[in-house]
Design a protein around this nucleic acid. Structure first.
Length: 420
RNA sequence: GCGGGCGUAGCUCAACCGGUUAGAGCGCUGGUUUGUGGUACCAGAGGUUGGGGGUUCAAGUCCCCUCGCUCGCCCCA
C-alpha cells in the first residue's frame, strides 16, 4: 500500500466530489462575472521570496507549512499556500496599476504541509476574489455582498455566520498592539504555553485562543475599539451600515484577528459549525500594506478566499450527473452506422453514450445505471427504413423516429437538463 | 510538529476465549436471452486480513515498529 497511494493529504477527486467542486467553481465564476470581476490565473508556484515577503518570516505558514524546494536551476521555489500573494505579484509584474482599480477572481490548488483533517488537505482548492486599488469601504461591501450571494446561491447562507471585525489603520493597530503586549506581559505566568509564544510572535492571536485560562484573561484585556482612530471607526461603520442596508446578517466579533502587519480595517470570516475544527469556510479582509511590502507602490487591496472542498462538503446534496442519451446498435452493420450517427449527434450537442456489448437487456440495464434519459435502439429493422427506435426510459414509451429527425427530437428534450 | 481512535474484496461489514481451505450483501463480468430496462435465477473474477517483525503447535485475532485513514491541538480554506 505504499507505492500506489497518493501523497499524504492529497487525494483523487472524481465522481460526486468532482461534481460538488465543479458546482462551487461554476457558481462562483458566474457570480464574480456578475460583479464585474475578470478572471486571473497565476502560477501554482512562485519564487519563495514572494510568500516570505508578504506572509512574514514568523507566520506559521512560512515557518512550518510551505512546500519549498530548490529547482534544477537553483532557484528557491514554493508551491503557493494562498492566492493573494501571487495575484499581488501579478498586479505589479503586469503594471496593472495603469488600469486603475482591478477586480480579479480565480481558483486553483493551494499547498500547505499540515496535518490533514476533515475539510483540510495538503493540496486543497480555493476560489479567490481581490479588489486592488480601491481604498474605499465600498469595495469591502461589494466583496462581502458577492460572498453572500455566492453562499446564497449555493444554499449555504443559512449554514454560516458572518463574523466581522476591524483591525483599524496602522496607527490604531500599533497603539492596540502595544497595549495588548503590555497587558499580557503582566499576566505572563497565567498564559498558556501557546499563548506565551504568541505574545512574542503574534500577540493579537491570543485573543482567539481556545484555552480556557487564556479566555479568562482575554475578558479583561484592552479592547481594540478603545484604540481605534476616528477615521478607522468611520470606515468600519460604513462597512457595517452597508451590510445592514443589504440585509446581510453579521456579528461583530472583536476576537477575530489577522496577525500580519499589512492587514488593515475590515477582517471577516464566514463560519460554520458543520465541519468540526475547520469551521472557516470563506475568509478575507483588507490588506492595504501588502503591495508596498512586496516592493510596489502603496496600493490598497481587499479580498477573500474560500475553500472549495469545504463549500462542496457543505452542499446538502451533490449535483446530479447529467443524463445522457444511450445509443444501442444491435449487430455489426448497426454498430458501423452507430459510429457515424454518434459523431453527428454529438457534434450537434447531444450528450451521448454508445453501448456496443451484450444483449439488449444488458444494455438497457447499463443505460439505467447511467441514468440515461433516452435509449436509441438501432437494429436491422430500423436501419432498413432509415430510422431508429427511441425509447423513453422514464415512461417506457417507444416509437420510431427517422434518423434525420433524431437530433432535433433529442435536443428539444434535453435542452433543459444538460445544463449542470 | 503534538495527543486520541481505527485499518478484513471496489464499497458496507462478518469470522466465538487465538484453531486449520477468511465469508456475506452490494457492485463488476458472463450466461439463461444478438431485440426490450429498473426486477429474477446461475456462474465467474476479485484478499499477501495495510506493510514488517515478534510471541505461539497455531495469529485477521496478542505484542512492537511502520505506513495510511480519522478526530482534536497549533494554524488555517
Amino acid at each position: 500500500m505504499s507505492k500506489l497511494q497518493p501523497v499524504r493529504g492529497t487525494r483523487d477527486i472524481f465522481g460526486e466530489d468532482a461534481r460538488r467542486m465543479a458546482h462551487v467553481r461554476r457558481t462562483f465564476a458566474r457570480v464574480a462575472e456578475t460583479y464585474g470581476f475578470d478572471e486571473i490565473a497565476t502560477p501554482v508556484f512562485e519564487f519563495t521570496e514572494v510568500f516570505k515577503r508578504t506572509l512574514g518570516d514568523t507566520s506559521d505558514v512560512v515557518t512550518k507549512e510551505m512546500y519549498t524546494f530548490e529547482d534544477r536551476s537553483g532557484d528557491e521555489i514554493t508551491l503557493r499556500p494562498e492566492m493573494t500573494a501571487g495575484v499581488a505579484r501579478a498586479y505589479l509584474s503586469n503594471g496593472m496599476a495603469a488600469q486603475g482599480t482591478v477586480r480579479l477572481y480565480g481558483h486553483g490548488p493551494m499547498f500547505r504541509h499540515e496535518r490533514p483533517q476533515k475539510g483540510r488537505y495538503r493540496q486543497f482548492h480555493q476560489i479567490d476574489a481581490e479588489i486592488i486599488g480601491d481604498p474605499s469601504p465600498q469595495a469591502d461591501i461589494e466583496l462581502l455582498a458577492m460572498a453572500w450571494q455566492l453562499l446564497t446561491e449555493l444554499g449555504l447562507a443559512q449554514a454560516t455566520v458572518l463574523h466581522v471585525n476591524t483591525l483599524g489603520d496602522p496607527e490604531s493597530r500599533q497603539s492596540y498592539r502595544a497595549a495588548l503586549v503590555d497587558y499580557f506581559s503582566q499576566h505572563k505566568d497565567r498564559l498558556s504555553d501557546d499563548s506565551r509564544t504568541r505574545l512574542e510572535r503574534n500577540p493579537l492571536r491570543i485573543l482567539d485562543s481556545k484555552d480556557a485560562g487564556d479566555r479568562a484573561l482575554v475578558e479583561d484585556a484592552p479592547r481594540f475599539a478603545d484604540h481605534l482612530t476616528p477615521a478607522a471607526v468611520a470606515f468600519f461603520e460604513t462597512v457595517c451600515a452597508g451590510l445592514g442596508r443589504l440585509g446581510i446578517p453579521y456579528t461583530y466579533d472583536q476576537r477575530l484577528v489577522r496577525g500580519l502587519d499589512y492587514y488593515a480595517h475590515t477582517a471577516f470570516e464566514f463560519i460554520t459549525t458543520a465541519l468540526g475544527a475547520q469551521g472557516t469556510v470563506l475568509a478575507g479582509g483588507r490588506y492595504d500594506g501588502l503591495i508596498e511590502q512586496m516592493g510596489g507602490p502603496s496600493t490598497p487591496g481587499v479580498g477573500w478566499a474560500a475553500g472549495i472542498e469545504r463549500l462542496g462538503l457543505l452542499l446538502d446534496q451533490a449535483p446530479e450527473p447529467a443524463r445522457p442519451v444511450f445509443l444501442i446498435p444491435m449487430g455489426e452493420p448497426a454498430a458501423d452506422r452507430a459510429q457515424v450517427i454518434a459523431r453527428d449527434l454529438r457534434a450537434r450537442g447531444v450528450r451521448l453514450e454508445v453501448d456496443y456489448r451484450g444483449n439488449l437487456k444488458k444494455r438497457l440495464n447499463r443505460a439505467n445505471r447511467r441514468a440515461a434519459r433516452w435509449a436509441v435502439i438501432l437494429g436491422d429493422d430500423e436501419l432498413a427504413e432509415g430510422g431508429a427506435s427511441l425509447r423513453d426510459l422514464d415512461s417506457g414509451e417507444q416509437r420510431r423516429v427517422a434518423l434525420d429527425d433524431l437530433a432535433a427530437v433529442l435536443l428539444a428534450d434535453t435542452a433543459g437538463q444538460t445544463g449542470h
